[in-house]
Design a protein around this nucleic acid. Structure first.
Length: 479
RNA sequence: UCCUCCUUAGCUCAGUUGGUUAGAGCACCUGACUGUUAAUCAGGGUGUCCUAGGUUCAAGUCCUAGAGGAGGAGCCA
């Protein structure tokens, strides 16, 4: 008999039909004459209840039906006599596909800590929390492609291995086929990369932006959605060494249209989650409330679904760096010296505590900060006429902080070249980037969205290591 | 990389000022129960108190070092 996925089975009303379900046992309970098995196959967060009449023939089998075991169940689809579910399957035949010794299987029908599950990453897909996150993650991948497709964008694959070390987005992982135990050296003692695979030093990409710009300056609207690697020794709840980034790049676009795009995209995918992932969101919402029930009322976060709707309802606040500095300078925490890094002048980068104050206390909604001092931003950002600031924009979200970083790009050849000289960016290896400003240069802009940070916000999870199946962080590459 | 905290049963955690035989819930095992919703009820403790030193009559508890984990900061998405 053909397997029916549990998601589809639970919607059926053709009671009396013979069906087959396959899945993993979540719990088994019951009494002397009847046993109930909660079976889950990952197609939905919901389980199907399998009802088994106990008899001499199935006693031995039911002893092996423990949490974690996998089953194939033939039975009759019936309207449930119990109150917890609409339908259930009355088993006529149960095949044990794979047993799970309860003395060894680590997952019990109870709440486990996320830290514990991180050490059991090969099994954590089987928990409600991680399967919910995985399904939402999939929906967001789809929603992002759908949004950009509907907006007339083309997805391009930018290289994962790159030879340019000038992107300036962070420390890079080196890519080499040289024998690490016998590294060839040049006469002056440096590593002889001429003997390496590419004949030059190569790294894993820290951003697809520069290549995406090349695409945009021909296809007008492009985006990348690929893996990104940063070898920073970052140990936080919002950094990974390997993460996924979405980077749209748009020709004939200024910083304001760039902000519109960022806000539209975020709202589109959040709405998509509300429309398509409600079962999982409701579960995660309950999980979050359960986790926070011991916290004081004012320390609890907003209910998850309410929080998502809240972001959809209002336009994001858009202010310049200079305006932000003025707000922060006159803020209570600054006057009362509550900030660890007091705001005393123009020019310093904002710290996490400042961003959180603006988003969570002052505006109480997402904030887009623009026009940062040029000295704290990358070389490729378009310079404003004031000679001090650049057309950068950061989208700040509650709890997450910076979820998007973007800018209008410098499209003036001379200004870009001048800035590269000032910031010691090697022009020789970037000749191809500069050349796009020499031939048919146009105003263009783009941004980078940290995919896992978006998932963090949507799921209410607290640690970025729990929204990617196999997190890569310093000293962690087990699975 | 810096700062702070944590490590006790398979899991989550309690363990008072250092005090004699190490505790609870869940899981597991045994039994009861005519349909349960993380079923319930009764009984059963399964332990390198992270590791190595040290202080002490006495260390899960105090000190030193190490390992692993978490949170915050920086870097950023």
């Amino acid at each position: 008999m053909k397997r029916t996925e549990i998601k589809k089975l639970l919607e059926r009303t053709d009671f009396g039909s013979l069906v087959n379900v396959k899945g993993w046992v979540r719990t088994k309970r019951g009494s002397k004459n009847v046993a109930f098995i909660a079976l889950n196959d990952g197609s939905t967060i919901k389980n199907v209840q399998v009802v088994v009449d106990r008899n001499e023939d199935n006693t031995e089998l039911l002893e092996q039906v423990n949490t974690g075991a996998s089953l194939s169940v033939d039975g009759t689809l019936l309207e449930s006599a119990g109150s917890g579910q609409k339908v259930e399957v009355h088993a006529t035949n149960i095949e044990l596909l794979g047993k799970a010794d309860p003395n060894e299987y680590p997952l019990q029908p109870k709440k486990h800590s996320l830290e514990f599950l991180r050490e059991k990453a090969h099994l954590r897909f089987r928990t409600n929390t991680f399967s919910a996150v995985a399904r939402i993650r999939h929906s967001m991948i789809f929603a992002i492609h759908k949004f950009f497709t509907e907006e007339g964008f083309f997805n391009i694959h930018t290289p994962i291995i790159t030879a340019s070390d000038a992107e300036g987005a962070g420390e890079m992982f080196q890519v080499s086929t040289l024998d690490l135990n016998d590294i060839p050296k040049t006469e002056d003692g440096a590593v002889d990369f001429k003997q390496d695979f590419f004949g030059k030093a190569a790294n894993l990409t820290v951003s697809g932006q520069l290549e995406a710009e090349l695409g945009a300056l021909a296809l007008s609207k492009v985006y990348t959605f690929g893996p990104t690697f940063r070898a920073e020794n970052s140990n936080t709840t919002r950094h990974l060494a390997e993460f996924w980034m979405i980077e749209p790049e748009v020709a004939f676009c200024d910083i304001y249209e760039d902000m519109d795009l960022a806000e539209d995209m975020l709202k589109y995918v959040i709405q998509y989650a509300l429309d398509h992932c409600m079962d999982d969101l409701e579960f995660l919402s309950k999980r979050l409330q359960d986790e926070e029930k011991n916290k004081k009322a004012d320390e609890r976060s907003m209910e998850l679904i309410e929080k998502l709707k809240f972001v959809l309802d209002k336009p994001f606040e858009r202010i310049t760096y200079t305006e932000a500095i003025n707000i922060l300078r006159n803020s209570k925490p600054n006057k009362k010296k509550k900030f660890q890094f007091p705001i005393d002048g123009w020019g310093a980068d904002l710290q996490s505590e400042h961003e959180r104050y603006l988003v969570e206390k002052h505006f109480k909604k997402p904030v887009i900060l623009t026009d940062y001092p040029r000295d704290i931003k990358a070389f490729y950002m378009k310079q404003n006429d004031d000679g001090k600031t650049v057309r950068a924009m950061d989208v700040l979200f509650p709890q997450i902080g910076e979820i998007i970083g973007g800018s209008q790009r410098e499209d003036d050849y001379d200004k870009l070249q001048q800035r590269m000289i000032e910031m010691d960016i090697p022009q020789e290896s970037m000749w191809w980037y500069l050349e796009t400003r020499k031939f048919g240069s146009v105003p263009h802009a783009g941004f980078g969205l940290g995919f896992e940070r978006l998932i963090l916000f949507l799921t209410g999870m607290g640690n970025i290591r729990d929204v990617i199946a196999f997190p890569r962080t310093p000293l962690n590459c087990e699975f």
